[in-house]
Amino acid sequence: MADKPSHSRVRIALAQFCYSHSIDLEDLLAALGVTGGTDAEAMAHMAGVLDGMNIAASRIREHGLDNWARSN
Rank of each mutant, 00 (worst) to 15 (best):
M1Q: 10
M1E: 12
M1Y: 15
M1G: 08
A2S: 14
D3W: 15
K4Y: 05
K4V: 09
S6C: 03
H7F: 02
S8A: 15
R9D: 12
V10P: 00
R11Y: 05
R11F: 03
I12C: 02
A13G: 05
L14M: 14
A15H: 13
A15D: 10
A15G: 13
Q16F: 09
F17T: 15
F17S: 15
F17C: 15
Y19I: 06
S20R: 09
S20L: 06
H21C: 03
H21M: 14
H21D: 07
S22M: 02
S22G: 06
S22K: 13
S22L: 09
S22F: 02
D24V: 14
D24G: 05
L25H: 05
L25P: 04
L25G: 04
E26H: 08
E26R: 12
D27W: 05
D27Y: 15
L28R: 13
L28K: 06
L29G: 06
A30I: 03
A30L: 11
A30H: 05
A31F: 07
V34K: 08
V34P: 01
T35N: 04
T35K: 08
G36K: 04
G36P: 00
G37K: 11
T38K: 14
T38C: 09
T38E: 10
D39V: 00
A40T: 04
A40R: 13
A40H: 14
E41G: 14
E41M: 05
A42H: 07
A44I: 00
H45A: 10
A47C: 06
V49Y: 15
V49R: 08
L50N: 08
G52E: 08
G52T: 01
N54C: 14
N54D: 12
I55P: 00
I55V: 15
A56Q: 13
A56H: 10
A57S: 14
S58E: 06
S58T: 14
R59K: 10
R59V: 05
R61L: 11
H63F: 13
H63C: 02
H63K: 13
D66T: 13
N67D: 11
N67R: 09
W68L: 00
W68A: 03
A69E: 14
A69Q: 14
R70Y: 15
R70A: 11
S71G: 06
S71I: 08
N72R: 09
